[in-house]
Design a protein around this nucleic acid. Structure first.
Length: 887
RNA sequence: GCCGGGGUGGCGGAACUGGCAGACGCUCGGGACUUAAAAUCCCGUGACCGUAAGGUCGUCCGGGUUCGAUUCCCGGCCCCGGCACCA
């Protein structure tokens, strides 16, 4: 008997699959489709086990679905633009393209050696013009529809390094590299108007019933919707000037916060209205019900009015205070690590509800990015405001009292030690006094609106997505700047704007494209005059926001994809990847899907029906990484144990969404199991592989045979539901292990194989005498081989062939089970007395409740325990247990 | 602080709608085979008491509902993840 030799088998089947184009698919309206996708890979070099776990999970699903008759699209590709390629270029002098393509070649080999069933003919790499030209195409469409726009925004700038810095690279206001004090600089940045879909993205998250709650929560937090009101406090006092009527600050404050490989976001935003004098200060509040307690106003240091006042003659003191705040570390200010402080501007505004003048302060903890950059100070009901008021001796009043508080406590509470932010009803609040705070919120918002001093509004944490990157290895943004015509989009028919190959990497941080005159200098598509190209490239998250559509039609040269093809394949039925993409990639993709929908390219709103976030693979308690030196290279494991054992181990050790701790012993255990499967199947092949063996359904079976048959059908049932819809891959494997144990026991019992006597090999005892034994074994073994094939496809195919089949295991289909056969004929019913199991009854499965009660009460163990006690009650759950209450 | 997910043997983990807690695997121990070892096959492995039959305890802690709770309810502790001076 040949030993289990995974390496030989695996090579053989991988070659066959490739030659037969086994996993390539086309649209087939006759068959139900299934789009199975794993997040494509960044070609960083070598994939480790942590990376490939995801592909294994997807492959089990894809292979299983194929066997169940689905037309399965299972493609793969490369998220190939990005910073590491550029860094490698600077460091090693390799061109980013060569570095990237070499890595892709290596990693593709790794995936093929794992036997992942990809439709490789659909492979895409985002760094190739066939792909990124469609980024440019979408960009232009978005520009047409005002979903892409350009805006000046402030970024951190190091004057010595001559580069933009990320917020994280600014330490105590200084450059992390050279220690120079960081300044801000205004740069033109491109944005995608994702906030246009903020509400829809939030609301539609309700429809994503097959997404993990964790991810939905993260997305909701990220979008950060909060309902409140804007209220205008008119300026008063001698210094106030009344100029423009509209005091609205610009809405969308700034760029997307920092992302993993992003370029720094805007630091702050001088709103459009900044250069006008304002008639009123608009504040954002979620607690308009407390406005009678608003005893002061606080502005962000970057607030336009503050900026304006600081310019005035004689405002030296003002300027000094302001500069102090502005020199405070930005990150520390954002996270509240600096002490809360402020200064009085000397100006006042009118609280529109009390009509009392309130002082206007500047406070370093008010953020220009959020709301209107101005807040009302309600020290009675907000802890920060309370501390601020205490510090600067501002009046504290309570306007909401909970029911337990004695009436008239309002004044006394000014001496309280903290703000009250709980529920209650209003006091000292004019016509609103006595209302419950939530009702007051509604009525006061309406009143503000009616009196034209404010309105209900919704505020989001989500900001528009800043996509400009001063980098080489990305998609060129397809616009040019012409002296005469201004910004002019590159016409669609002259796409792609190719990324030039020859480039020098200064490492200076400015876009390398700006150094290439042949790229920069062009002609204006509009007037034909001289023009300069945009030299920033797109954030790589643009590339990954729609690649799943491209897979449906990867060779299309007319459009990013044929809408009909996407209509057939979409949406992605099963999508798996790491949780680290829960926010960025998964929100961007949902955004892009809506953009394509609104372009009329698809009628889907959501791209991914089911999402699985797979857990990481740890070794020695830590995430695998090259720098920690704890990576497990799948190729090493394949050499030792084979791809199948590796796949099985990773699938078995824990549920897919949990993290796993790598152990060599565990992998070895899986290898042992496969060798055990191999032995029993191979050894039985001659007996059960013949022609004309009837189905056991048509034969008279003895007890042992019926037992094995029952186990077989029950296992098929369990594995089937564990895989689909549950995707409990670990329990599916354990069910199959049980079946194998049962097969060994059966063979030992019926003497059809000699097990365990002479060791290394099993020995066939001779022709199995009973036809029914052969039939039952055949059914069991063939079901096993088919069920295990999504996990260990190479071994399964080989065994299928050994069993005398041609045409492959997918064609054989998924095994069916008979519910009636799967059910046990005899079951063990526990008998509880006062909650403790005291006896077990072995009875036919269909024993009636009355009969069970009778048998239980007659059982000697039960009788013994009931001695001297009176039976008060007997509960019988047919098929489950008998519970006796006695005392 | 707000939102979400968790807490089960020495370890990874099972337990579908409340019904025998610990499936399956790892580790460890024992046996068979072998001159021997490896491999293989079989058996055992939550804790405590007992020679055994059997008993007691046991799913983070404290209560509750129920004939019966890992599962449901109330209160608390701890861990993980997200958001957070967000007004």
């Amino acid at each position: 008997m040949p030993d289990y030799k995974p390496q030989t088998i695996e090579k053989k089947w991988q070659d066959r699959w490739r030659d037969a184009r086994a996993f390539e698919v086309t649209e087939d309206p006759e068959k139900p489709k299934f789009y199975c996708l794993e997040m494509f890979a960044y070609p960083s070099g070598h994939a480790h086990v942590g990376h490939v776990r995801n592909y294994m999970i997807g492959d089990v699903v894809a292979r299983m679905k194929r066997m169940r008759g689905f037309n399965v699209l299972h493609p793969f590709g490369w998220d190939a633009f990005g910073l590491p390629a550029e860094n490698a270029a600077i460091k090693a002098g390799t061109h980013p393209e060569k570095w990237t393509l070499d890595n892709i070649a290596h990693m593709k080999g790794q995936l093929q050696r794992l036997g992942i069933s990809y439709a490789w003919e659909r492979e895409i790499a985002t760094c190739l013009p066939d792909y990124y030209r469609w980024n440019q195409w979408v960009f232009l469409k978005m520009l047409e529809r005002d979903l892409a726009y350009r805006r000046r925004s402030n970024v951190n700038w190091c004057p010595s390094c001559n580069t933009v810095l990320a917020n994280e690279q600014v330490i105590d206001g200084k450059c992390w590299r050279c220690g120079t004090t960081v300044t801000t600089r205004e740069l033109e940045q491109w944005f995608f108007r994702i906030t246009h879909y903020a509400d829809e993205l939030l609301d539609a998250s309700e429809t994503l019933t097959e997404w993990p709650e964790k991810v939905l929560t993260m997305q909701r937090n990220w979008i950060g919707r909060s309902e409140g009101a804007r209220v205008r406090f008119a300026l008063s006092g001698p210094e106030s000037r009344v100029a423009g009527r509209d005091s609205r600050l610009a809405d969308h404050a700034n760029a997307e916060p920092e992302t993993a490989n992003s370029h720094p976001p805007a630091v702050n935003e001088p709103p459009a209205a900044s250069r006008q004098a304002l008639a009123a200060i608009e504040v954002f509040t979620t607690r308009i019900d407390t406005i009678y307690g608003a005893n002061f106003i606080m502005l962000a240091p970057e607030h336009p009015l503050v900026q304006e006042w600081s310019q005035e003659a004689g405002a030296d003191e003002f300027r000094r205070s302001l500069q102090r705040f502005q020199s405070q570390d930005r990150t520390a200010r954002l996270t509240g690590e600096v002490e809360k402080e402020g200064f009085d501007t000397g100006r006042t505004a009118i609280n529109p509800f009390t009509e009392n003048p309130v002082p206007i302060w500047v406070a370093n903890f008010v953020l220009i990015e959020y709301g209107t950059g101005a807040v009302m100070g309600v020290p009675g009901h907000d802890q920060r405001d309370f501390e601020f008021a205490k510090k600067y001796n501002l009046p504290i009043t309570r306007v909401v009292e909970d029911a337990a508080m004695t009436h008239g406590a309002a004044e006394a509470s000014s001496a309280a030690s903290q703000a009250y932010d709980g529920a209650g009803s209003l006091v000292e609040s004019g016509e609103f006094t006595g209302l419950d705070w939530e009702e007051a919120n509604r009525q006061m918002t309406a009143a503000a609106q009616q009196r034209k001093i404010g309105e209900g509004t919704v505020q989001y944490r989500l900001k528009d997505w800043g996509i400009s990157r001063q980098r080489y290895w990305g998609t060129p943004i397809p616009v040019v700047y012409c002296k005469a015509c201004g910004m002019v989009p590159v016409p669609s028919d002259s796409l792609p704007v190719l990324l030039p190959k020859v480039v020098e990497f200064s490492g200076r941080g400015d876009s390398p494209l700006a150094q290439i005159p042949e790229f920069v200098n062009t002609t204006c598509p509009h007037c034909g005059g001289p023009a300069r190209r945009e030299t920033d490239t797109m954030d790589t998250f643009v590339d990954s926001s729609w690649y799943f559509f491209r897979f449906c039609d990867p060779k299309n040269t007319e459009l990013p994809f044929d809408p009909d093809k996407v209509a057939y394949w979409g949406p992605v039925d099963f999508y798996s990847g790491g949780v680290e993409h829960a926010i960025l990639h998964l929100i961007y993709s949902r955004f892009f899907c809506r953009v394509f929908r609104d372009l009329g390219m698809t009628n889907m709103s959501e791209p991914f029906t089911r999402l699985l976030t797979q857990g990481m693979v740890l070794k020695n308690g830590q995430v695998m990484s090259k720098s920690k030196g704890n990576v497990v290279d799948p190729d090493d494991m394949i050499q030792k144990y084979g791809a199948d054992a590796l796949r099985l181990y990773v699938m078995f050790v824990a549920p897919p969404e949990k993290e796993i701790e790598w152990t060599d012993a565990g992998l070895e255990g899986s290898w042992r199991f496969l060798a055990r499967v191999w032995r029993v199947v191979d050894q039985l092949a001659e007996t059960i592989g013949g022609e004309g063996i009837p189905s056991p359904a048509e034969l008279e079976l003895n007890d042992a045979e019926r037992g094995l048959r029952r186990k077989t059908h029950d296992t098929i049932r369990r594995v089937t539901v564990d895989l689909d819809p549950r995707v409990h891959l670990n329990t599916a494997v354990s069910a199959m292990m049980e079946l194998v144990n049962e097969l060994y026991a059966f063979c030992g019992r019926t003497d059809c194989l000699r097990i365990g006597q002479q060791a290394e090999e099993l020995s066939t005892v001779g022709a199995v005498e009973r036809a029914s034994t052969v039939a039952v074994l055949k059914e069991s073994v063939e079901a096993l081989v088919r069920m295990i094939s999504p996990f260990t496809p190479h071994m399964a195919e080989e065994l299928w062939e050994v069993l005398g089949h041609t045409g492959g295991i997918v064609a054989a289909g998924w095994p069916a089970f008979d519910e009636a056969v799967a059910k046990a004929e005899e079951i063990v019913i526990p008998v509880q007395i006062n909650g403790k199991v005291r006896a077990r009854l072995t009875v036919p499965a269909d024993t009636s409740e009355d009969r069970l009660r009778e048998l239980a009460l007659a059982d000697p163990q039960v009788v013994r325990h009931l001695e001297g006690k009176a039976v008060k009650k007997v509960v019988v759950a047919a098929g489950r247990l008998v519970s006796i209450v006695a005392g």
